[in-house]
Amino acid sequence: MNDRYNIHSQLEHLQSKYIGTGHSDTTKWEWVTNQHRDSHSLFIAQHDMLSYFALSENESRARIKFNFLERMIQPCGPPPERMDTDD
């Protein structure tokens, strides 16, 4: 019984260990950046997806793959200026 409580009370902590999870202070930029990275990694991983994008952009698959990898660095551009409001 007690164990289950504990596991559960630690659920958030456990989740926070994964990249891509969020919390109540996650900003739009962080969230969308993660979305982009997830998307690109998925596109790269899926053979058919990659072919589809290559065909659409009239590029080689390797080029598309490279672009996606590059784009994962800052997919949405630089983070927004931090606003100095402490809630």
Partner: peptide, 22 residues
């Protein structure tokens, strides 16, 4: 707080399945 917890739960469970749904 709670909504992110729900989000994290489904994110960890089905990360790629959410790509088309964002």
């Amino acid at each position: 707080d709670v909504y992110w917890k729900v989000y994290n739960t489904i994110y960890i469970g089905a990360e790629h399945a959410m790509v088309p749904a964002y």
